[in-house]
Simulated assay, not measured.
Amino acid sequence: MSRTSTSTLRLLLLAGALLAGSSPALADLRMCNTTGSRVGVAIGYRDAQGWTTEGWWNIAPRACETLLRGTLAARFYYVHAVDYDRGGEWTGKSVMCTRNKEFTIRGIEDCLARGYERAGFFEVDTGEQKSWTIQLTDTTGGAPARP
């Protein structure tokens, strides 16, 4: 998977409970791709057994996918996303393990020594909500917004 960081991709975070038309009683971590490109998404989180990274969810343009079902177990989730059509990525300072194909990886240490790749993930603070939706956008300018 080729990755570049030349595009001016930005993200917009929204609380799933605040989205118009969202179902009440659902508790999930969702990702909405508001761009005109196909994106691949990997997530990282810490649970009772330690750190886990999972991927890839392929999300069509202007579509949403549920990444984790049920009440969120953590306050912070970490996301790395790749724009398949135009290049570029959504990345951050938290380094975690990934692979080029579907994966679930336990632990974030020694990625290369264990045969994995290293990628930067951006942090999403859910504010301890029971559900959350992350929206990826390709707008330029301005800092990421939070509810």
Score class of each variant (00 low, 15 high):
58 N>Y: 13
133 T>E: 14
42 A>S: 09
53 T>W: 03
101 K>W: 03
122 F>D: 00
45 Y>W: 09
70 G>I: 11
76 F>C: 09
132 W>F: 15
46 R>P: 01
44 G>S: 01
27 A>Q: 15
64 C>A: 13
134 I>N: 06
62 R>K: 15
128 E>G: 06
109 E>S: 14
89 E>W: 00
38 R>M: 07
49 Q>D: 14
124 V>A: 04
119 A>T: 08
46 R>G: 09
84 Y>M: 10
73 A>H: 07
67 L>D: 08
135 Q>N: 11
102 E>R: 03
110 D>P: 04
43 I>G: 00
51 W>A: 13
48 A>Q: 12
39 V>H: 01
31 M>N: 06
31 M>Q: 11
122 F>A: 03
107 G>L: 13
56 W>T: 04
41 V>K: 03
36 G>L: 13
85 D>C: 04
83 D>H: 04
78 Y>S: 04
63 A>L: 10
119 A>E: 11
128 E>P: 07
71 T>N: 09
41 V>M: 05
71 T>P: 08
136 L>C: 08
88 G>V: 00
38 R>S: 11
103 F>P: 01
45 Y>H: 07
54 E>N: 01
68 L>C: 07
46 R>L: 10
110 D>Q: 14
93 K>V: 02
93 K>E: 12
50 G>R: 06
69 R>I: 07
43 I>R: 02
133 T>W: 04
112 L>N: 06
122 F>T: 01
71 T>R: 14
81 A>Y: 02
87 G>A: 06
